[in-house]
Simulated assay, not measured.
Amino acid sequence: MAIDPKDAFLHVIYDYRCLATAGYAWSVTGPAGAHIKEANLLLPEVGTMIQDSIHVHARSLIDFYTKQAPWPTDVVLSRFSSSISISAGRATYLESMKHPIEVHSLHLTEWRDVPYRTTNANTRDGATRGRPQWATENTVLVDQLIEALKEVSQQQSRWQKPFAELYSAVVARLTDGSYDWPTNLGEKRDVENYLVGLGL
Score class of each variant (00 low, 15 high):
residue 3 I to E: 12
residue 4 D to F: 01
residue 5 P to E: 11
residue 7 D to M: 10
residue 12 V to G: 05
residue 14 Y to R: 15
residue 18 C to W: 13
residue 20 A to Q: 07
residue 23 G to H: 05
residue 25 A to N: 08
residue 26 W to I: 00
residue 32 A to M: 07
residue 38 E to K: 15
residue 39 A to E: 10
residue 40 N to L: 03
residue 42 L to A: 14
residue 42 L to R: 14
residue 44 P to N: 04
residue 46 V to S: 15
residue 47 G to T: 01
residue 48 T to A: 06
residue 54 I to D: 09
residue 57 H to T: 06
residue 58 A to D: 07
residue 63 D to F: 08
residue 66 T to V: 02
residue 68 Q to Y: 03
residue 72 P to G: 10
residue 73 T to V: 05
residue 75 V to K: 13
residue 76 V to D: 08
residue 77 L to N: 06
residue 77 L to G: 01
residue 78 S to A: 11
residue 81 S to K: 13
residue 83 S to R: 14
residue 83 S to I: 03
residue 83 S to P: 02
residue 87 S to E: 14
residue 91 A to L: 03
residue 95 E to P: 00
residue 95 E to D: 10
residue 102 E to Q: 15
residue 103 V to F: 02
residue 104 H to E: 09
residue 106 L to V: 03
residue 106 L to D: 02
residue 109 T to C: 08
residue 109 T to E: 13
residue 110 E to K: 12
residue 110 E to A: 09
residue 111 W to G: 12
residue 112 R to C: 01
residue 116 Y to W: 10
residue 116 Y to C: 04
residue 122 N to L: 14
residue 123 T to K: 15
residue 123 T to F: 08
residue 127 A to H: 14
residue 128 T to Q: 14
residue 131 R to M: 11
residue 131 R to G: 03
residue 134 W to H: 05
residue 134 W to S: 06
residue 136 T to G: 13
residue 136 T to N: 13
residue 137 E to S: 05
residue 142 V to F: 01
residue 144 Q to E: 14
residue 147 E to T: 06
residue 149 L to E: 06
residue 152 V to M: 02
residue 155 Q to A: 03
residue 157 S to K: 14
residue 164 A to S: 15
residue 164 A to P: 09
residue 168 S to Q: 15
residue 169 A to C: 11
residue 171 V to E: 12
residue 173 R to T: 07
residue 176 D to G: 09
residue 177 G to Q: 11
residue 178 S to I: 00
residue 178 S to N: 14
residue 178 S to V: 03
residue 180 D to C: 06
residue 181 W to F: 12
residue 181 W to H: 13
residue 187 E to S: 10
residue 190 D to F: 03
residue 191 V to A: 10
residue 192 E to F: 04
residue 192 E to C: 00
residue 192 E to T: 05
residue 193 N to M: 04
residue 196 V to P: 12
